[in-house]
């Protein structure tokens, strides 16, 4: 009995964990996008600083990135199309992890530009690649969780009945 009641507790906690994962990843994305959007040149310069993409593509990505972040972030927070959006969010963070690892491996001394900033370090500033990677990887995990156990509590998906089938499949 004790075992089954504790496993029920665990199961009833899952939607709440999803909610937290959605909110944390969503808010981080909204803040990151919001800080970039005030200064579009910064994100263009930051993307170019990674030297990963050809110049013209990097320009487009630089302008698109803050918008993508904000919209994905909003959808995560309100819990609409949770599974698809969480997958996109996790892939986005995975791309950032890859980008930072790339810059690190190549020995570029750049600021990640994660929360605005043009990818350039101020004088005497050292890059914080490991911290950035760990943070972003943690956010990947949150995205994967939300994609595995959607939509969590307080989700528009739930209110609209968009996930009832999935819930049954998961049970």
């Amino acid at each position: 009995m004790a075992a089954s009641s504790s496993s029920r507790n665990v199961r009833s906690a899952i939607p709440w964990v999803t909610t937290v994962a959605r909110l944390v990843l969503g808010v981080v994305l909204i803040v990151a996008g919001g800080l970039k959007i005030g200064n579009p040149s910064d994100s263009v310069v930051a993307v170019k600083a990674y030297q990963l993409l050809p110049e013209s593509l990097a320009t487009i990505v630089g302008y698109a990135l803050p918008i993508v972040e904000i919209i994905i972030g909003i959808l995560l927070v309100i819990g609409l199309m949770t599974r698809v959006v969480a997958v996109v969010g996790a892939l986005l963070m995975l791309a950032f992890v890859f980008g930072i690892a790339w810059a690190w491996a190549k020995g570029y001394k750049i600021d990640c530009g994660c929360f605005g900033g043009g990818g350039e370090l101020k004088k005497g500033q050292e890059p914080t690649y490991l911290l950035d990677i760990l943070r972003d990887f943690g956010l990947v995990v949150l995205g994967v969780w939300a994609a595995r156990f959607p939509p969590g509590r307080f989700a528009l998906d739930g209110a609209l009945g968009l996930h009832t089938v999935d819930d049954k499949e998961n049970d």
Binding site: I37, Y63, I71, L75, M81, L160, G161, L162
Partner: peptide, 26 residues
Amino acid sequence: RRRIITYTTAGVVAVAALGAGILWNM
């Protein structure tokens, strides 16, 4: 059917917002 319509609508609105936002920013 209702679910599919709702989902599709939300998807279309989100993609449209994305496109409009990117164009606006550029």
